[in-house]
Amino acid sequence: MISYIIRRLIMLIPVLIGMSIITFSVVHAIPGDPARTIVGDKATPAQIQEIRENLGLDKPAYIQYFTYVKDILQGDLGTSLITKQEISKEIKPFLAATTELAVVAMLIAVFFGVNLGILSAWKQNSWFDYTAMLIALIGVSMPIFWLGLMEQWFFAQELDLLPSNGRLDPRMEFDAITNFYSIDAIIQGNWYAFQDVLLHLILPAVALGTIPMAIIARMTRSSMLEVMRSDYIRTARAKGLGEFWVIYKHTLKNAFIPVLTVVGLQLGLLLGGAVLTETIFSWPGVGRYIFDAINARNYPVIQSGILILATIFVLINLIVDLLYAWVDPRIQYGKGE
């Protein structure tokens, strides 16, 4: 197992190198000049030239690349061209904001997805089943940014029931310690803040969690149907165990791996992919951070940001794979893939 982990980690290296090269080339091929963004519209060519020299942007691309790799190897993710802040520091709250959102979205997805799936299978071919599966189908087909907009329009604007943007009422006295606001609120024992954080999470998390929820519901349903047909259940039933709970338990076990796969995959994707949800709900997350950096030609932020996200993505995949083995010892890791 340990040798497997090590091998997987080693395999990560060429992927990261490849990514850094692609990111670097794409980013530097984007027309436009970060120097212009820094000094503004009214800068003279001389001013721009000076800044380019200060930033090392006048050097040939390959030298810039090697400088960048050298810095990364020394653990230096670089400095934002625009804010002059260290990226490793600056990115933390953004990462935390998106992670918190993604985790809550997944919790919603798993909770509702699994239960919907089980109940629909239990009541197979009933109106409940049809409704639930229709919802699930629509759920997978929904452009989430549109869903977000509609939520915002209906729940925040028309009903004024839930906050439409941000992570917390700015009037609240609150210290961001870990930058996971729900955890921070608990640490500070501030229950109003905790409640407010949850309220702010609902709309974006539901938008973000809809697709995984739909996928999970459909998977759980088919997995449950299989369980219900199996001999094992018949035996259990014969033994007189409470039927629903037997099936519930077994389905949960059976559904675990596919659900885990969805969660793992989506969690990794959501980190960088929540940019639309973040845009709509003014969520100060990492997707928006990198998106803004692309618009401002903020090279180091784009490069390091994408590198961080990719590393996290790959690590999550690794963890998911390891969890498989832990859950289902039949799965063995020896050969390549």
Partner: peptide, 30 residues
């Protein structure tokens, strides 16, 4: 027999939903 299980599971779902909605009131101290 299984009715109870169904009701239980449903009510868990409902509870979770209502908890989320119950938070909807505006907090006076904020």
């Amino acid at each position: 027999m299984n009715k109870r299980g169904l009701i239980l599971s449903l009510s868990v779902t409902l509870l979770a939903t209502s908890f989320l909605v119950a938070c909807g009131g505006k907090d006076p101290n904020a």
